[in-house]
């Protein structure tokens, strides 16, 4: 049973209708993929843009897929509804050449969790920041930026948070290869 309030669900459906998503692109034929044969089928069939989900099954009550430019509108809507920011993160889908950005929100009183996702192209990873709506997004976005190389436009302080300031590369990308440590391997 989803604990998502109906009015929120309706607002989401109204604001973010099932529009032409440029996702998910058909996966490129990845023969060289180390996972082998089952990589050929598309990984994520296109889900409905906004659906109620069962908390006991997946851990969130509303799963909304929006377009990248709508993320601010979604955050503002949730902010007005009194939601708190839970986390911001990304998932790398190299086969689809996309980053999936996942924004989680929670409600302290209503005990509802909303998961808002969007997908951006992997070769031009840019999305608007939420840190002016939720200052707590600031750190989450800095973390996502340093690990995935996603640019959050308008971010007030886009520097490394957890990685050393001179670190090169984006460690959570699937194609990341760590630099050999010159001290350990001469």
């Amino acid at each position: 049973m989803s604990r998502c309030p109906d009015h929120l669900f309706e607002r989401f459906q109204e604001l973010f209708p099932a529009m032409e998503m440029d996702t998910p692109a058909p996966p490129e034929d990845s023969v060289g993929n180390e996972d082998g044969a089952d990589a050929a089928e598309p990984r994520l069939p296109p889900p409905p843009p906004c659906r109620k989900t069962e908390h006991a099954k997946v851990g969130y009550d509303l799963d909304a897929i929006v377009e990248p430019h709508q993320i601010e509108a979604a955050a503002k809507l949730l902010d007005a509804e009194g939601f708190a920011i839970d986390m911001v993160t990304a998932v790398d889908w190299p086969d689809a050449a996309q980053f999936e950005l996942v924004y989680d929100f929670m409600h302290f009183q209503a005990a509802t969790r909303v998961c808002v996702r969007t997908r951006i192209p992997r070769d031009r990873p840019e999305i608007a920041t939420l840190s002016h709506i939720y200052p707590g997004a600031n750190w989450h976005e800095r973390e996502t930026a340093e690990f995935y190389g996603i640019q959050f436009t308008g971010h007030p302080n886009p520097i490394h948070l957890l990685l050393p300031e001179d670190f090169v590369g984006y460690p959570l990308r699937k194609d990341f290869k760590p630099q050999p440590d010159p001290l350990l391997e001469p």
Partner: peptide, 10 residues
């Protein structure tokens, strides 16, 4: 306060 916790996810 609660509002600050909400905005920061505390």
């Amino acid at each position: 306060d609660a509002e600050m916790c909400r905005k920061y996810g505390a």
